[in-house]
């Protein structure tokens, strides 16, 4: 059975690339372009892994991460935070809020796929 991946980002081109990558690896994919939609989708879709952008309208990635961790059904869900902000404090903050991996943009697609596979293994 294939893993479920939820992609959350407000940049359309990035979403296109991520969606293409994940589908190519055979995952089931859902897409959200802002924080609120991401939380709704996560509850219905119950993803195994979330690719989460930090800078988004309405709800930031940090808030979404925190909210996701508070849902009992999503305890096993892995979270990878993707951000263009690479400062040390933000990495720490993201990990503290429950993210499993923190990846800065621009990222290597190969590394990203490897990370996801190892998390889901």
């Amino acid at each position: 059975m294939s893993h479920r991946i939820l992609i959350v980002d407000d940049e359309p081109n990035i979403v296109i690339s991520l969606e293409y990558l994940m589908k190519k690896e055979g995952f089931q994919v859902a897409v959200a372009t802002d924080g609120e939609t991401a939380l709704q989708l996560a509850a219905e879709f119950v993803p195994d892994l979330v690719l989460l952008d930090v800078m988004m309208p309405k709800k930031s990635g940090f808030e979404v991460c925190q909210a996701l961790r508070a849902v009992p059904a999503l305890v096993a869900t892995k979270i990878i935070m993707l951000t263009a902000k690479g400062r040390e404090t933000e990495v720490t903050k993201g990990l503290a809020l429950g993210a499993d991996v923190y990846i800065t943009k621009p990222f290597s697609t190969k590394d990203l796929v490897l990370q996801i596979k190892s998390l889901l293994a």
């Binding site: 940049e11 081109n13 990035i14 690339s17 991520l18 263009a84 943009k105 621009p106 990222f107 697609t109």
Partner: peptide
């Protein structure tokens, strides 16, 4: 970084 991310990924 945002446009760079797309460029690199594609």
């Amino acid at each position: 970084r945002t446009p760079l991310t797309s460029i690199r990924a594609f």
